[in-house]
């Protein structure tokens, strides 16, 4: 399944530029208000015109990683909430919901994803035993986070990967490197990342969650989709990967039909690093 082979399938199923088209904007206008994405309570959902009602697909995604790597900031960025300016430990579990419409590349079908992120403070997980099971139960995917400026968080991640592969867990997994804007201070080399990817066959996304430079408010009012553009690449990679892996494990899709395999000996290295660059937010 997901852990047997790593297929580079990104961009093969979802139309990655659809949200810029008029048809796509019609959907996105329901989840964007005044340049920012709308936040929904549990009793609400995006209201679309009746002729546009798409199929709703819900995923539960758990974020895991060392304290302080930026789990909360990453979720805030992805769902469209203000990224916290000072670090504060998450005291227990906090769940976030984001809606994201996607059009399939090979058909006219539009899917509306409802992604629920489960974020839990690392200290709380260690202190209270009910928290980790609650986060993992029924999770469709796990995002493992490390920080480019914290070598320990990357080493933690490696030991975590080997632990989970030993326990034979079958779960869809992606890796997210945070604080990519501080790349010049990176404590992890590109080579190490490539080795990591080859060893564990997981996609690695890179993200920077820092606040916008001042004066960008103006930009938002001119182009109301700016905030969506900012996270679109990461959201697409994330959703597409989970969606494809689910289809593969349910047998609806066969990977051989879809793609060229990313070889372990690094033949596709060029493509690989392209893909990594593309996921830069």
């Amino acid at each position: 399944m997901a852990s047997d082979q790593y297929y580079d399938l990104s961009g093969s199923q979802f139309d990655s530029s659809w949200f810029k088209t008029a048809a796509g904007k019609e959907y996105f206008s329901s989840i964007v208000r005044k340049g920012k994405r709308r936040i929904y309570g549990l009793l609400e959902r995006p209201s679309l015109p009746p002729h546009l009602i798409p199929e709703l697909i819900s995923y539960k995604v758990f974020l895991s990683g060392k304290a302080g790597v930026g789990k909360t900031s990453t979720v805030a960025k992805l769902v469209g909430l203000p990224v916290p300016t000072t670090h504060s430990e998450t005291p227990g579990i906090v769940t976030y919901v984001v809606y994201w419409p996607v059009k399939l590349l090979h058909s006219d079908k539009v899917l509306l994803f409802r992604l629920q992120f489960w974020d839990a403070g690392e200290n709380a997980i260690r202190k209270f035993e009910h928290i980790l099971p609650a986060c993992k139960s029924g999770a469709d995917a796990i995002l493992n986070l490390f920080s480019f400026t914290d070598r320990l968080s990357f080493e933690d991640l490696q030991s975590q990967m080997s632990r989970s592969s030993q326990s034979g867990e079958h779960v869809i997994r992606m890796v997210v490197g945070t604080k990519y804007d501080l790349y010049s201070n990176s404590e992890i080399t590109t080579r190490e990342l490539q080795n990591f990817q080859e060893q564990w066959k997981v996609p690695i996304l890179k993200i920077k969650n820092s606040g916008k430079p001042a004066g960008n408010e103006l930009l938002y009012s001119v182009d109301s989709m700016q905030e969506v553009h900012d996270v679109a690449t990461v959201m697409h990679s994330l959703l597409e990967y989970i969606w494809i892996q689910k289809k593969i494990s349910s047998g609806e899709l066969r990977p051989e039909d879809l793609i060229t395999r990313t070889d372990i000996d690094g033949k596709n290295e060029g493509e690989l690093s392209d893909e990594l660059e593309a996921s830069y937010v």
Binding site: T72, V79, L81, P91, V94, Y96, A134
Partner: peptide
Amino acid sequence: TLPTGTSSDVP
């Protein structure tokens, strides 16, 4: 102080 629109389970 909880982020808008979230749900939480806190000891």
